[in-house]
Design a binder for these strands. Sequence first.
DNA 1: CGGCATACCTGCAAGC
DNA 2: TGCTTGCAGGTATGCC
Length: 301
Amino acid sequence: MPELPEVETVRRGLEGALVGARFERVEQRRPNLRFPFPERFVARLEGVRVAGLERRAKYLLGRLDGGEVLAMHGGEVLAMHLGMSGRFTIHQTNGAGQSGQYGLQADGGEAHDHVVFHMSNGARIVYNDVRRFGFMALIWPGELSAHKLFRGLGVEPLSDDLTPAFMAHAFARKQTPLKSALLDQKLIAGLGNIYVCEALHRAGLSPVRTAASLANSKGAPGARAKRLTAAVKSVLSDAIAAGGSSLKDYQQADGSLGYFQHSFAVYGRAGQNCPRAACRGTIQRIVQSGRSTFFCSRCQR
DNA sequence: CGGCATACCTGCAAGC
DNA sequence: TGCTTGCAGGTATGCC
């Protein structure tokens, strides 16, 4: 599930339990997720305090203190990616007591609980990932921008870096479908399959038109680039807002952060009526680059 | 370089 | 019921 809005929701949900606390004990229950864990992963975390939790694209970045020796210089960054099925759950093991559903967990943990952070504030933060497409890395801050995982990342879609002019320029001369260009993390970082479909619908643009055709006939950012830029930002902000409201009562669900019932306009709605007012079209499902695209061929041109 | 298919891994639903 | 097939929200890699 995790695209940018879900990762941001997870970040906000984890912040309180993680930031300011130390890793008292870390359980790493297997040698790898998608990639091997860093060398001495557990030892490099235990005893270390978390100074902050940020997000870049779909990555969570835990800023670590350097401990006594490196106190003046700061510590490593714990980079975490949720892949397709990664999720964090917070279990409060002190204070007011734990909610009932947390008590169901057996000693060895649920299936696919791969990492457990036991924090100094009593929080137990569990990383569960059925498909193990997620991964964690420890990176020195100075090496972050040159790191293989980060150096190619494009602009943050919710930042001021994403403008109609940027998008038109980045997509210029690309004959690839508009949808593929939006999914390309080297151009815009953080969009995934769902929100690309949703943004294209909101902008009234077809996923199959070429990326280059976003610009107007003079090659300048025109109405289409403006619409798409605004749609990308609003689709993401709306989803983050929905996630934020779900955070308040996440304990009522299953304790997982960032997983809530979204309602999408087109994603997963093949065969249904287009929800756009006054559009009589039907949502289609097609496959582009091996992945499902949902759109309305009537109002998306 | 650009663009595409493939691989990674498990679970689930649908179809036979 | 049980088997097979296809599909799932991400990214790295290798191939043309």
